[in-house]
Design a protein around this nucleic acid. Structure first.
Lengths: 108, 108
DNA sequence: AACATTGTTCGTATTTTTGCGAACGAGTTT
DNA sequence: AAACTCGTTCGCAAAAATACGAACAATGTT
């Protein structure tokens, strides 16, 4: 063990991954990615959990940067955060591309 | 809210994401993906945490299916789990591909 | 047999996550 | 202003995650 910390990209990727680390939040993101109508109520209807819990998951996704919220009285509209979504996409793609996984390599 | 549960692919993707949701585990996976020598001690040297903690992170990655361990006395060799790695890669790619993110769509 | 090396497991402490109902606040409608 | 809708925040409880040192087991060396 040494005293190194983690690289910014590692922290960023882990942050995105952590936000995606719950089936409810995956479901929310998939819903947002496919719908035009992305109001809180619509999201809540899709999920088997209480509205307070939905609100918490949305808060977490927002803090991770994957979505953004906008008040449209009397409703609240949620959307994918485009720039960060593309950033996450690239970070994950690069991450998985890094393993050649050839016979004889680290993977067997 | 309804009584639906989550889809198997959502659960699987969330499981992978959760395992990737810590910078130490990202660092471990990146290290394994690039090295031929992937013994516990080598991994431990790369990280700023105690060996007991490293062992726990490895256990979590193994349970998520992203890596596999193999005893090579007196050492333990860890490797990317190739099949699941490719599965994860595909699940993430499909997930991010699902958002067209066009102006006028859900994303603005 | 005693010792050294390697990594896991145990026990513990702290923090974070997950979940819910109740209460609340913002904005609309009556 | 009173009532209603929509969603957040509060307060709480239970579970899981994170981290460490100490103890342990397994193997190899002296």
């Amino acid at each position: 063990m040494n005293s190194k910390s983690y690289l910014p990209d590692q922290e960023r990727l882990a942050r995105f991954a952590k936000a995606m680390g719950h089936p409810a939040r995956i479901a929310i993101l998939q819903f947002l990615a496919q719908q035009d109508t992305c109001y809180f109520g619509d999201i809540h209807e899709e999920l088997p959990i209480a509205k307070a819990t939905v609100s918490q998951h949305l808060k977490e996704l927002k803090e991770a940067g994957l979505i953004q919220g906008e008040v449209e009285p009397p409703k609240v509209k949620y959307c994918i955060h485009r720039a960060n979504w593309q950033l996450a996409r690239r970070l994950f793609a690069d991450f998985f591309a890094a393993c050649p996984c050839k016979p004889g390599g680290c993977c067997g």
